[in-house]
Amino acid sequence: MYTREHFSLPPEAVHEFVRARSFGVLATCHQGRVFTSPLPVDLRVDEDGELFVAGHVARANGMSKAFGSAPPATLTVLGPDSYVPAEWFGTRSRIPTWFYCAVEISGRLELSDPARTRADIEVLIDRLQRRTVEGSSWTLDEIPADLTTSYLRNIVGFRLTGLDLASCFRLNQNKDGMESLAEALTTSDVAARQELADLVRRPPTAPAG
């Protein structure tokens, strides 16, 4: 992914963004074919302090056949985005552009055995349940055992390891017109633009050089 220093997030901010979204598009190649899959993902640290991403796809998904060969893969996690017309800069003599927030995570895929697949799913569910439902204690154990077994039989787990992370939060950091932009985004009735307004006012990226 093309980016520049002043569009890039500090490492901890990248981690927080990915965990907050917990959803991305995984891409890899198998036997000359490119596969992509949108899926929930979990960025974690292993016992050695190394970052990895845990996830799973349906067994019927052709992508799952690639996992055993440890291919390179890239996960893209997207945040809010919007077309930005010239008028929002407070002038008509500007080229329209597009604001967006993206993190790209590259590494190699590792096939997970059934036990690790279940463990990774339980960790992800626990985190998302507690974040989404206050006081939630729901677990897979509340589903009849035969249904859980059937569900797990029909998925294939993986981990993405040896990670290289890149980020691009393109928010007009190195140009003028920030206040005019923020005001235009704030008054929009589109949720993504309202989210971008806060980011334009307080970019989480490196200062413009």
Score class of each variant (00 low, 15 high):
Tyr2Asn: 13
Tyr2Gly: 05
Glu5Gln: 13
Phe7Tyr: 15
Pro11Ile: 05
Phe17Asn: 00
Phe17Cys: 01
Val18Cys: 08
Arg19Met: 05
Ala20Thr: 12
Ala20Asp: 13
Ala20Leu: 12
Ala20Ile: 00
Arg21Asn: 12
Phe23Gly: 02
Val25Arg: 07
Val25Leu: 11
Val25His: 07
Leu26Cys: 04
Leu26Phe: 04
Ala27Val: 15
Ala27Met: 03
Ala27Gln: 06
Cys29Leu: 08
Cys29Pro: 00
Gly32Asp: 06
Arg33Val: 14
Arg33Phe: 09
Val34Phe: 06
Val34Trp: 03
Phe35Ile: 01
Ser37Gln: 13
Pro38Arg: 09
Pro38Asn: 09
Leu39Asn: 05
Leu39Asp: 06
Pro40Gly: 12
Asp42Pro: 05
Arg44Asn: 08
Asp46Ala: 11
Gly49Pro: 11
Gly49Asp: 08
Leu51Ile: 05
Leu51His: 13
Arg59Gly: 11
Met63Cys: 07
Met63Leu: 14
Ser64Gly: 07
Phe67Ser: 02
Ser69Met: 02
Pro71Ala: 06
Pro71His: 09
Pro71Ile: 07
Pro71Leu: 03
Pro71Thr: 11
Pro72Tyr: 08
Ala73Gln: 04
Thr76Tyr: 07
Val77Gly: 01
Gly79Pro: 07
Gly79Trp: 07
Pro80Lys: 07
Pro80Glu: 06
Ser82Phe: 02
Val84Lys: 00
Pro85Ala: 11
Pro85Cys: 11
Glu87Asp: 14
Trp88Phe: 13
Phe89Gln: 04
Pro96Ile: 06
Phe99Asp: 06
Cys101Ile: 08
Ala102Asn: 05
Gly107Glu: 09
Gly107Cys: 07
Gly107Arg: 03
Arg108Asp: 10
Leu111Lys: 14
Leu111Gly: 02
Asp113Phe: 03
Asp113Thr: 04
Pro114Cys: 12
Pro114Thr: 12
Thr117His: 01
Arg118Asn: 10
Ala119Met: 11
Glu122Leu: 03
Val123Leu: 14
Val123Arg: 15
Asp126Asn: 13
Gln129Glu: 15
Arg130Val: 11
Thr132Trp: 10
Val133His: 15
Val133Cys: 12
Glu134Val: 13
Ser136Asp: 13
Ser137Val: 15
Ser137Tyr: 11
Thr139Ala: 10
Thr139Asp: 13
Leu140Trp: 13
Leu140Phe: 15
Glu142Gly: 12
Ile143Gln: 14
Ile143Ser: 14
Ile143Asp: 09
Asp146Lys: 03
Leu147Ser: 11
Thr149Glu: 15
Thr149Met: 08
Tyr151Val: 01
Tyr151Ser: 07
Arg153Trp: 02
Asn154Tyr: 04
Asn154Cys: 09
Ile155Tyr: 08
Ile155Val: 15
Ile155Glu: 05
Gly157Lys: 00
Phe158Arg: 01
Thr161Cys: 13
Gly162Pro: 05
Leu165Ser: 00
Ala166Tyr: 00
Cys168Ser: 15
Cys168Phe: 00
Phe169Ala: 01
Phe169His: 10
Phe169Val: 03
Arg170Tyr: 14
Arg170Glu: 10
Arg170Lys: 15
Asn172Lys: 02
Gln173Gly: 03
Lys175Trp: 02
Gly177Gln: 05
Gly177Val: 05
Ser180Asp: 08
Glu183Ser: 11
Leu185Arg: 01
Thr186Glu: 15
Val190Asn: 14
Val190Tyr: 02
Arg193Val: 00
Gln194Glu: 08
Leu196Lys: 03
Leu196Arg: 04
Arg202Pro: 01
Thr205Pro: 06
Ala206Pro: 00
Pro207Lys: 10
Ala208Gly: 13
